[in-house]
Computed example of a mutant assay.
Amino acid sequence: MKSITTYKQRVFGLDVVRAIAILLILCSHSTILLFPESSSTIVKTIQFFGTIGVDIFFVLSGFLIGTILIRHIQNQQTSLKQFISFWIRRWLRTLPNYYLVLIVNIGLLYVFNSEIPKQLYKFFFFLQNFSSQQPDFFTESWSLTIEEFAYIIGPVILLALGLFFKKLNKWSFLIMTCLVIVCITIHRFIFDVHLTKIPEHLSWSKILRKVVIYRIDSIYYGFLGAFFAFYFTKSWKQLKWLSFGFGAFLFVIIHLNIFSNQLNPDHFSTFFNIYYLPLVSISILLTFPVFSNWKKHVLLTPLITKISLWSYSIYLINYSIVLLTIRQFIDVDQVSLIAKFSILVLYWILTFAFSYLLFTFFEYPLIKFRNSINNKYLY
């Protein structure tokens, strides 16, 4: 279960998915940098696809981590010690980058004499958006908290199931996955019943879409994909284009209905609170049979792999560190269109340059360290 970090070991199609997700997010943030107050349809559409980029990451993460947990079950590596080893491997992959960038963001608060957010300590324990809106600081971290809790909850439930069933199997994994999805869906239903109208000073995205206890199921739709890809491999491959077509159709129909009827969470709260986010996750998941079976492309593989490898660093760096720092020094709203283009180029260059440095000199050495740990300490 070593990390996949070389061209030969990686699944090219899933690297494509990861690259698409991070590029959608960068494009969305580019519009926030240049046109933060714009109501243009084009700008809003680009920003919308940035939110979809995060949903893609959720489903992809669930698909990959779900596959790892399935292999644990297949190899009968389901003791507490072995799941602790699973968590350690996850944390060695995700936490160092997170804490480094968090500390840099705190440093920037002092450099720019900005207000220190209340309960800053919560960011160190991934509690900043656990059950309520996250403070306006290190805003991209909201999705990382959802992923971290998702990775903890799954194995805990499997351990609990193991107390009732002496041996875990594929159905234990499916029960665990469905249990999480059902519980979170019920939780959103309760949210909808108790909050029939969103207060004017709050946004649906901040009070529901970016809150851990309402979004963990997004990861577990990826778990469902891992289940079917692993145990029903033949059908997963044979029906890939039918699945892709249905997923694309579902995605388009949902959003055509939203845009053509001008639906929004203020007036159609039940649809957005309960159904919209799961439907998006399902539509994304349905495209995975095609992507997971996509063979390497001679010309594109090196570029796609690099973007995929750097994607975590890019996600952490691009907004709070690069974009907001640029806006500290340049009043982008007051410059000419040509100057804005130059600022945009600067934003992309700095993002990729810093991400390359972070990955090469910090993230990748830690990945190698993790992979060098003798298996006897992990299992």
Rank of each mutant, 00 (worst) to 15 (best):
K167L: 04
L159M: 14
L168D: 02
L163I: 04
G162M: 13
A160R: 03
A160I: 15
S172R: 14
F173Y: 12
C178S: 13
F165Y: 14
A150Q: 10
L174T: 01
L168S: 02
V156F: 14
I157N: 03
F173R: 07
A160D: 00
I152M: 14
L168E: 02
I152S: 06
N169A: 05
S172E: 12
I152H: 10
L174H: 05
L174Y: 08
A150V: 11
T177H: 10
L161Q: 14
L163H: 05
C178Y: 12
I152K: 09
I152T: 03
L163E: 01
T177D: 09
L161P: 02
T177I: 05
K167Y: 05
W171Y: 14
I175H: 02
A160L: 15
I175W: 10
I157K: 07
S172Y: 13
I157E: 05
F173A: 01
C178E: 08
V180E: 06
L179N: 03
L179K: 08
A160E: 02
P155K: 14
F164P: 00
L168H: 05
P155M: 14
F173Q: 06
G162W: 08
T177C: 05
T177N: 11
I152C: 10
V180R: 06
K170Q: 13
F165I: 08
T177P: 04
K170N: 09
L161G: 01
G162A: 09
I153Y: 05
F173N: 05
G162Y: 12
G154C: 12
L174V: 02
G154H: 10
T177A: 10
C178Q: 06
L168P: 02
L174N: 02
L163V: 02
S172C: 11
M176I: 00
L168G: 03
I157C: 07
I153N: 03
I175N: 01
K167P: 00
A150I: 11
I153V: 13
L174Q: 05
P155S: 13
C178T: 06
Y151N: 09
G154K: 09
